[in-house]
Every structure is written in structure tokens, then in C-alpha cells.
Write a protein that binds this DNA or RNA. Structure first.
Lengths: 344, 344
DNA sequence: GTTAGCACTCACTTTAAACGAGTGCTAATT
DNA sequence: AATTAGCACTCGTTTAAAGTGAGTGCTAAC
């Protein structure tokens, strides 16, 4: 099942054309293209072969051909000439990092936004798993007699905060002691281990030094128990509504309902290997994603993988452009983050 | 233009029926209702009058009647019997506040989610304007030689954080001095005034005590300049897609594109007076909201208005239920927040 | 004042016909 | 042997016409 050069060319043109127009491609319109100097009849013969091999298919008997999933897969694996981005694209991507003072979350969010604007698809960014980060510092700042704010800062500069209740008997001295003990014992520990460590290592110490040991211990442990999972950012969901494949409102609704399940989409995106990853249609193993492709790219700091950026679009996606954009952005993100967080 | 009791009854039944079914209501189906013991012909006469007065209208000559905006308005103002919520509804709302340790943002977000689930409409919650809150404490926590995290805590327990660059020459002592000066001078000031105050009151002091005065001053001022506006939370956008009035994908797209403009929606929601507020269709003064009604309620801490919760639905909305839910939730929110933040 | 009856309206549904983009196959051409 | 012109055929889409039915307005009778 080897394709001739001519079949390759025809397949490529069919895919390109369909990506552009969303209309089934007929033999006559192909024969008019510059790249192809064959009669429509010859093309029909080749198309019949391509169809037999499963690369293209007909929506109905008398219509033009449409790439099948297998066709897209072949196109992505073998026919894709990486699109050279123009200077404007490049400078837009780089504008994400232009601001001097920046927040990690801001960058991630802006990345998602810009990516969706540049592609007219939906972009999804999975932030780093905060709970593998190591604790840099704990602070507890009292607001009034009963309430205080607990703040965790990680070595990556991520800040988590929770409101905690203070025991009535707690005085400023006790609070300070508690914070000191916590910092002393917990600094450097991954956030995910805080809860355990508090009971194992901090409990005793607190008991010795603090009046309202019990209440406080419990409260603090609870506060730090809440799993801090990766944050998920979306941009350009509305773009889906402009695509002809989603003119059916039920399809859109099903897709949106799936997307709203952050749990599910996190798993979908997280479990991808490093580098660029393309999942076409049913490769995503979910019926609502049948008409969608998902392209993911990971970003890192140094050698440590931090998160994923993804583009969700129709199977009829501009693979070449999207891949180039993701490559560029993930590289830039990685280099900025490496610079920022890896000089200890 | 005073309505007779019979006209009132008919109007009410028409609106109720249309809210339920989304289908134009005909005279015959009305005459079959228990509440109404009149022949269809009589009802037709009354309907003709109601139409002449502008309370109902016909989509086309030979169709049943549909409430007009004026009809909804009258219904909301005069015919609405506040729906008594059942125990299940009440306990669901109260479950929002069940958790012991809670974050303001978490509560707000959960409120939005639950509200949208209970109503099957879209809920929007506008958080408090953080920049009128007063500064409780500033902390700057160095991550490495070049970077630090600046943390602002307000008297309401809200935490803002930014990454800042440190001057190369900065040592631990300088940093501590800076933080002390900042806290000393800025505590109690509204966040919105920090930027000005830094130049007016802090600049001099820093100059006297800190080595790399210039770089630091600038950096800090910039860090605190970024306007911290009210956060906006959405839930149940997808619910719109199940409504028959939004079977037209273009309508949905226009609405979603409008909603995505946070700026715009903030203004729409913010500028409402205290208490419950109902805007029907074109009263929202935007063409994409023509088929939508927006019901808003404010929540406060003590006497200070903090934010707004809103439900966006079709003009054919279950006004009674939504108003009851919003009333309950805004009251509960207010009482919890008052308890929490008003015991200084 | 109320109601039964009837002609009328108009969106929606159904059916049939015409259209046209595209195919597969065959026979002629290169 | 590969290519192409020609032609019958398929089938979704468009257009037109006819039929259906929910609902109305009006009038005359109760």
C-alpha cells in the first residue's frame, strides 16, 4: 500500500483544499489547479484508489471527496511542510513576554488568549502542578480576632492563600511561634506533603509551645490539605461557533459540556508526551471529539516539564500553522521560564 | 388603561404558559385551563384588547399570543407571586456556606455554579472591588537573587501577588527595611492609592535608607499600579444552548462574544442599585440582549455594598423562581460576609 | 355580556419536479 | 499502458405547489 507521487500530490491538495473551504473536493476543481495538470477523469481514477485505501471518503455517492481520519493522519505525518511563520506572527507571540513585571499566571492566560486569536480555534493551557513545587515560606496574617490569612509561597513564586479561623485564646506571640515552627519544619517540602508533615513533624512541636494546640493544628492541617491541582485556562471557546462543522447546536452543546468538565480535559491534555502531539478525531477516544483535533505542546523550566498548551479545533484544522505556532510559543515559554526559575 | 381582573388573569396565564412552553399561547388552549372558564371566543376578545394595549403580541397573523416586553414588565411588577422555595432548594443554597474553612473567591464561584445549576440559566457574579479595600500588610519574599514575590493583603483578607525584579545590589537588610517602610507608610491605605502614595510618602524615606533606591522605587510603584478591578465569575454559559430561543447559532455567537467582553458585562451589572433588579430585553440597551433578561441582586458586608450576583436568561425566564433564589442567596451571602469581615 | 360558527390567514409540512455537482464506467486517443 | 473525452447515473439541494392545522377576527344568535 504505497502511494505514488501523484496520489500523494492529490491527497495533499484535497486536504489543503478541504481545510480551507470545508467543502468536499471534486475531481473537476482539482484538475483546474495549477499544481495538477491532469484531466478530471484521471483524477477520478486516482481518487477511487485513494478512497479504496481509506485516505479519503465521500459524504454521499455523488459528492466530492473529504479526507478521512486516516487521510489527515497521513497528511500530518508525511505531507506537512512546516509553515514558515511571518514576522507579524512571530512578533505577536513575542509580545506575550514583553512586559517587564510579570506574573506566571498572566503570561499563561495571555498565551491562551493570543493563541486563540491567531488561530481562530480554542486554546487550552494547563498550568504547572503547583503541589510538586517546594514551599518557600508560610505567612499567617491576622485580620481580626477570629480570622487570619494563611499564605504559602513556593520556590517558583506561586502564591496560595486561605482564610483560617483563629482560636479565641491565640495571641500574637503564639501566632508568631506557630509560623516560625511551620517555616522551620516545612520549608523546602513539596506542597503535596504538607498535610502529612504537619501531623508527623509539626504536631509535637506545636504541642510544646502553643496554648491552643489542638484547634490550631487541626485548622492548619485542613487548610493545607486542599489539593492544589493544575489550573486550566481557556480562550476562544466562542471561536468554535463560527466553524461550519459546528452549525449544529447539539454538537456544540455536547462539546462545551465536555469541555466544562475541567477534570476530564485536564486528563486529556496532561497525559501527553513531551513535544508536539497531534490527536485527530476519534484518536481522542471520546465521541464528542469525533470532529475535533487536539494539538498539544509541553513547556518546561530547564528539564522539568511544567505544563501543556493545546489547541482544540476541527479535524479540518490548519495543522501546519497551529503546529508552528505551538512550537514557537512552547519554546519561548520554556526559555523564559527556565531563565526565571532556574537560577537558584 | 386599567386592566380588568379577567384581563389580568388571562395575561398572567399567558405569561406563565409561555414561560413554561416557549410556544405561542392560543385562545383555545387557554379556555381549557381550569383557572379560566370562558369560551375561546371570549378569550379572543380579551386577547385582542390586551394586544391593543401592548401587553401581548402575535409572531404572525394566525398564531397564538406571546408576551411583549411590556407584558413581561407588567407581569414582573404586578402579577408575580413570590415563589416559595422548597426545602431542597433552600438547603442547596445553604450548602454553599457549609464548609468551615472558606475562601471568599471559592464561595463566590460556588454560588455562581450552584445558581446556574438550579436555574438552568447563566449566572454571573461580580466580586468586590478590591482596590477600595485597605492595605493590611505588604510582604516581599525573595525567591532568588533577581526575583521576589510581593504580596499585598487587604483588611478583607484578599491577597494580591506580583513577581518583582530585585536590583542586583539588594541585600536582605535593605529588603527588610523597604518592607518595613512600606508597611509603615501604606498600611490602611486603599489599594487604589498605593501608587500615588509611594511616590509622595515613600520615595523620600527609601532614598535615605536604601542603596538602590531608584530601581526599587520604580519597580515597587509599577507593581502596585496595575488596577485591580472586580473579578467576574461565570457559570452555566452552556445552559443557553439548550434554550429554544437560542437555536440560532448566530444569535448564540453574538451573545457569547458580548459576554466575553468582561469590561462590558461588568458595567452592565455593576451599575445597578441595591436590591433586586430586573432588566427585560431591550431595557438592557444592547441588541444582543434583546431576547434576554437580566436579574441582579447585590450583596454586602454590613452596609457596604460589595458586589452583584446576576442571572442571565431568556426574556421568557422563570422570574419568580429566579428572584426568590437571588433574594435568598444575596441575603445569606450578606450575612456571612458581614459576620466575617465586620468584626474588626 | 357571552358564545357558537365560519371564513380567513399564514407558518409549517409534504410532495414532486428540476437542478447540478460529482461520480463510475467505457471507449477512443496518445 | 496510460490518459482522456463522453455519457449515464446518483443524490443532495433548491424551488414550487398543494395540503394541513393552529389560531384569529367577525358576526349573529343566545
Amino acid at each position: 500500500m504505497l502511494l505514488t507521487d501523484r496520489q500523494l500530490l492529490i491527497l495533499q491538495v484535497i486536504v489543503d483544499d478541504f481545510i480551507r473551504s470545508a467543502q468536499p473536493v471534486g475531481s473537476r476543481s482539482l484538475s483546474k489547479k495549477e499544481e495538477i495538470s491532469l484531466s478530471s477523469a484521471t483524477i477520478r481514477n486516482e481518487m477511487a484508489d485513494l478512497e479504496e485505501m481509506g485516505f479519503i471518503e465521500k459524504p454521499h455517492t455523488s459528492s466530492g471527496r473529504v479526507p478521512s481520519e486516516k487521510g489527515y493522519r497521513y497528511y500530518v505525518d508525511h505531507l506537512l511542510s512546516p509553515q514558515v511563520l511571518n514576522n507579524q506572527d512571530i512578533s505577536i507571540i513575542q509580545s506575550i513576554f514583553a512586559e517587564k513585571i510579570f506574573e506566571f499566571e498572566t503570561i499563561i492566560q495571555r498565551s491562551a488568549k493570543i493563541l486563540s486569536e491567531m488561530t481562530n480555534y480554542t486554546s487550552i493551557v494547563l498550568g504547572p502542578a503547583v503541589n510538586v513545587n517546594k514551599l518557600k515560606k508560610i505567612q499567617i496574617i491576622p485580620l481580626n480576632k477570629e480570622t487570619a490569612v494563611a499564605i504559602l509561597v513556593t520556590d517558583t513564586g506561586h502564591v496560595e492563600n486561605r482564610t483560617v479561623s483563629l482560636p479565641a485564646s491565640m495571641d500574637a506571640g503564639d501566632l508568631e511561634k506557630t509560623v516560625n515552627i511551620l517555616n522551620d519544619r516545612l520549608s523546602g517540602a513539596p506542597l503535596s506533603e504538607l498535610h502529612d508533615k504537619i501531623y508527623k513533624e509539626v504536631a509535637m512541636l506545636l504541642k510544646q509551645h502553643i496554648h491552643n494546640y489542638d484547634f490550631m493544628l487541626h485548622n492548619i492541617a485542613e487548610t493545607f490539605k486542599v489539593p492544589i491541582s493544575e489550573k486550566l485556562f481557556f480562550a476562544g471557546k466562542t471561536n468554535m461557533l463560527t466553524l461550519p462543522e459546528f452549525h449544529d447546536i447539539d454538537k456544540v452543546r455536547n462539546l462545551f459540556m465536555m469541555i466544562d468538565q475541567e477534570e476530564w480535559i485536564s486528563n486529556l491534555i496532561r497525559s501527553k508526551s513531551a513535544g508536539i502531539n497531534v490527536k485527530i478525531g476519534s484518536e481522542n477516544e471520546n465521541s464528542v471529539m469525533e470532529d475535533c483535533s487536539l494539538i498539544t505542546a509541553t513547556y518546561s523550566a530547564g528539564t522539568e516539564k511544567l505544563g501543556t498548551i493545546a489547541i482544540l479545533g476541527p479535524t479540518r484544522m490548519e495543522y501546519s500553522r497551529v503546529i508552528s505556532l505551538l512550537q514557537l510559543l512552547s519554546r519561548d515559554l520554556t526559555s523564559v521560564l527556565t531563565r526565571l526559575y532556574h537560577l537558584k
